[in-house]
Simulated assay, not measured.
Amino acid sequence: MNEEITLDLRDFFYIIRKRVKMIVGVTVACTLAAGILSFFVIKPTYEAKSTIIVGKPQGNEKNGNVQYNDVMMYQNLVKTYAEIAKSASVSERSAQKLGGSLTSEQLKKITTVTPQQGTQILAITATSKSPEEAVKIVGAVSSTFIEESKRVFPTGGDIQIMDKAKLPEEPIKPKKALNIAIAFFLGLMASVGLTFVLEYMDSTMKTEEDINKYLGLPVIGIIPKNMEQQN
């Protein structure tokens, strides 16, 4: 049984060694393609983020126990405010503030409203090919959201921007290093798989080892590939 395992491993390494140039070529090609796409073809996408806090109305002083209940109530209200932020009225008015450069539907696709679980905080994010535009979008959506919330839900909590959107320094995608690493492993796996497929489909005998292995016959002699012509 040990001999069979040894033979299988020898076959495996023999096949890999026989087509090592193809494996290296395919792997390098995939890695280079991913690098070119990530660095020169795919445009970077930037993300800006603003956080909004929902609290009790100012001047509403209560005892400690009720204050805790207020916190729990406003945590639940955050979900309601999230739906207001996602509403068509907010996206339409935000699009108007941006000067019509984006439609309401386009704005909905590139903005995300996320309630922070267990807190009174709401996060509004926007993505764009331009970092400046991403900041402008978040600013427009955040201010419009606060205005609309006070209009449609005047009895709700006190809504304020906690952190304004900052100009993003690095894009969120493409993730260049990750893309190159994935391309390297995919290229390696694909080339190794192709190697074994080609080996399985190739029924010709090319070496003395093939004759010994498949026919069990001794090699009496070989004919060199390059024979000098006798005059």
Rank of each mutant, 00 (worst) to 15 (best):
Q67L: 08
D11C: 10
T51D: 03
K18P: 01
R17H: 07
I23C: 00
I5D: 05
R10K: 11
I146N: 06
G100D: 01
R17K: 15
P57D: 04
I159H: 13
A126Q: 13
M201T: 08
V41R: 13
I211L: 05
G193H: 13
K97N: 06
Y81G: 02
F153W: 14
T125L: 05
V78C: 15
K166E: 07
V90M: 04
T125H: 09
G118L: 14
E169T: 14
I16D: 00
L7D: 02
F145A: 02
R10T: 05
K175N: 07
K164S: 13
D210G: 08
A88F: 08
G139H: 06
T45E: 07
R93T: 10
I159L: 13
S149V: 14
G156A: 01
A165P: 13
L217T: 09
F145M: 02
M227V: 10
D163Y: 11
A190Y: 09
N76T: 10
V90I: 13
E148R: 14
G55E: 04
R10N: 06
Q75A: 03
L7S: 08
G64D: 08
M73K: 13
M189L: 12
T207V: 01
S191M: 08
T103A: 00
T112S: 11
P168L: 03
S104N: 01
K213C: 00
S143N: 15
E132W: 07
S38R: 06
T31R: 15
Y74S: 05
F185R: 09
P44I: 00
V135P: 12
N212Y: 01
M189H: 10
I5G: 07
S142K: 11
V152T: 11
I110D: 08
P115E: 06
T144F: 10
T103M: 02
T27H: 15
T45D: 05
R17G: 00
G157E: 00
E208N: 06
V138F: 10
G187Q: 12
S191T: 04
V78R: 12
N65A: 13
I23R: 10
L107N: 01
N60K: 15
P224S: 00
K108T: 09
Y14Q: 09
N212W: 00
